[in-house]
Design a protein around this nucleic acid. Structure first.
Length: 166
DNA sequence: GCCAACGTTGGC
DNA sequence: GCCAACGTTGGC
């Protein structure tokens, strides 16, 4: 049986909408509302229970990685897409053939230090410890991104996390 | 609030 | 199947 390679992710959320503090309060949350095919495919096809997630605050001052979460479900249809009253309603998503999927995540920790986008970019320079990290690339809008294990570990270290990668 | 980057839509 | 127009993301 083929072993899964990818186990680390970065997921963006606007803290005005849903922050790491909200997840800390809720303990667990639905990652609904992803309306981008590439991001959906990552959730639906590649995420698995137990994967670790860098919780990134976008549209924040400053933007950056604010915490750690863990994937706790397989992907399942995003039912908000079927709800006409929802902001995430999409008439093209059919309950018989859902277009949009989501996972649930649980709170792991809030980082003692926000790892700002500036700090990520500084380390993503050529030869830097985060070279190639997607979130540091100009114009990178994808809201769910795979993260190299070494990069994940480095960001945890920068943030003073208790979480360790194995 | 501006606007660059880029994904999606739809006319052809 | 091309590509211009449009809408959204998200840093600044």
């Amino acid at each position: 049986m083929a072993r899964r390679k990818r186990r680390y992710w970065l997921m963006k959320s606007e803290p005005d909408v849903y922050s790491i503090d909200d997840l800390a309060r809720d303990k667990r949350g639905e990652w609904e509302g992803v309306r981008n095919y590439q991001a959906r495919n990552f959730m639906r096809d590649e995420m698995a229970i137990g994967d670790l997630v860098l919780f990134y605050h976008s549209n924040a001052k400053p933007p950056g990685v604010a915490g750690v979460a863990r994937v706790v479900t397989e992907a399942y249809p995003d039912h908000h897409a079927f709800d006409e009253a929802s902001n995430y309603y999409d008439p093209k998503s059919d309950p018989e053939a859902p277009r949009w999927w989501m996972v649930d995540v649980e709170f792991v920790e809030k980082l003692p230090e926000l790892v700002t986008l500036d700090a990520l970019k500084a380390e993503a320079q050529p030869e830097g410890p985060l070279e190639g990290m997607l979130v540091a690339r100009r114009g990178q809008r994808l809201s769910i991104q795979p993260v190299d294990k070494a990069h994940f570990a480095r960001v945890l270290r920068l943030g003073g996390a208790k979480t360790r990668v194995r």
